[in-house]
């Protein structure tokens, strides 16, 4: 199984959720994060200017589609990074 992690500006959330549904994700987690990057320091103090982290566990093929579509459709529009990693999932039937 693959875990895809997306860190992006909070405004991208709705577009990401649409994309996750389209690639067949069954569930995901997102939360406000702090840090610094190309967009300067993000403090997470106000929702409007915060960054969020989205995590989703997917079948490898779906993860591949997600990464490709993120790159093509959302990277040009929002401040965003994404990476995937191999994970061992206990209740893999859920995904």
């Amino acid at each position: 199984m693959k875990q895809v992690t997306i860190i992006c500006e909070a405004y991208a959330l709705e577009s990401i959720k649409d994309l996750l549904r389209e690639v067949g994700a069954h569930g995901w987690t997102h939360f406000t994060v702090e840090g610094a990057g190309a967009g300067g320091e993000r403090t997470g103090e106000t929702r409007e200017f915060a960054n969020i982290q989205v995590q989703v566990i997917l079948q490898p093929a779906a993860a591949e589609t997600l990464m490709t579509r993120l790159h093509a459709e959302l990277f040009p529009l929002f401040g965003m990074i994404a990476y995937e990693s191999e994970v061992r999932v206990i209740r893999s039937a859920k995904f």
Partner: peptide, 9 residues
Amino acid sequence: LKFPESLYV
């Protein structure tokens, strides 16, 4: 000095 997000909201 920093406000928690929930206080701002």
